[in-house]
Amino acid sequence: MSTLVIEGLQARIAGRDILRGIDLTIASGEVHAVMGPNGSGKSTLSHVLLGRPGYEVTGGRVTLDGEDMLALPTWRRAQAGLFLGMQYPIEVSGVSLGDTLTESFRAGGRDPAAVGAAVAGEAARVGLDSRLLDRALNVDLSGGERKRNETVQLAVLRPRFAVLDEIDSGLDVDALRAVSRRVEAATTEFDLGVLAITHYTRLLRELRPDHVHVLSKGRIVRSGGPELAEELERTGYAEWADVVDEGGRAGSAQPVVDPFAGHLADPFADPLA
């Protein structure tokens, strides 16, 4: 049983405060959904947890079973048991999935010989065409293929906690079901704890959350059970858009405009939303 604890986490990017004190505690096997309007800091949270360059942590702590994650370089956080499923998985030309996972296994003292069979099995499970496995990472893959690919990596690496940054964006219904079912299964199969960051509730039909948190303007403004996601489904984020920030427009139902996660900038924006 492991615990990921986020306490008072504050972060900025390019001099702008984005996270203003996040508190979350996630235990093995639990699924936490963090939902919020565009610009609320969802993507920043996921990137800060893995230490992406460009984000500056200005306060707070993140510990995994007491080990300070923020003091570790990215690869050591991954080896300690964190995984980031990206909203926009990055193309790495010339580098294959197999080589990447092999090197990760090697660095972690695991037997790299196990990678090949594990990748093949997981690809079949999420419906990723095995011919795509030889391609360079994320190069010439569709949005759905990329997310299936992220899920294959998650399942092969078997982290203790997975941070899934809008893993549901850019997915058709079939891919969404395959990806979310696989993650849901992992919560019992290897006791995976999940922090699923999402704008939409549709992810949470297969990947059933134990806890739902609403993120607005860099803070968790409300936490509850699965019923909170249903409430959001009906009401949207209007209620939260101006809860915290005194600078917000009172009564506005519009999502906060943020240049880093603007609605217009999202090519995978959900047409059904």
């Binding site: 992406r52 990215t74 690869w75 991954a78 990447t100 090197e103």
Partner: peptide, 8 residues
């Protein structure tokens, strides 16, 4: 960053 986030 992408490769490091996989533990490499």
């Amino acid at each position: 960053f992408y490769l490091e986030s996989r533990g490499v």
